[in-house]
Amino acid sequence: MVISIRKKADELKQKGPDLLTRPVGRLMYQSIRAMLEHIREGETLVLDFQNIKVIDSSFIDEMIVRLVLDSRNGEIPFYVKLKNISEIAEINIDMVFRSYSNYKNKKIVVLTENICQNNAFFIGPLSDREREIVEFLRINKSITQEDIVKYTGSPTGEVAGILEGLDALRVIKKENTGVFFAL
């Protein structure tokens, strides 16, 4: 499912290029939640921010953080990916995600369609090894645990733990066959 945030903002009478404040974030969240009634289990929700310039931390907290948490904890698990994020939006999302992860002791990360300033395709605090695996998977589309063990040279147990963790973060997809897929 692809949602144009610009179109949604217009529907919600937010005409400017910026999406700011908690009330606007809550409005946007509620509007997107209503559409998620139709999402399939395991589907990727792409939020397209084309023509949106600034989103501030309040908006991010009320909208993106809640959607990412819903994707993990809701009745129907899904995946979230961001597209066409502006430089300032990326900086603001990164700051909110890092603060949340540090102080809640619970990581929050989101994948992106476009390359970010960290030279990767995600925003949030992944470790170097996690980042390596996410990038490896993005290039190879699907992998097994053994592929990663060979690629990184890390022990099987450690790799299994990292893959489970990334799956729980909803940044990779694990199929019942034990194969992992990129979003």
Partner: peptide
């Protein structure tokens, strides 16, 4: 453009603290 966007964030964040 970057600095304009930075200032938009700063204005928004500080002003929200007033009513919050």
């Amino acid at each position: 453009d970057r600095i304009i966007d930075y200032y938009v964030t700063v204005i928004s964040e500080i002003c929200q603290n007033i009513y919050e």
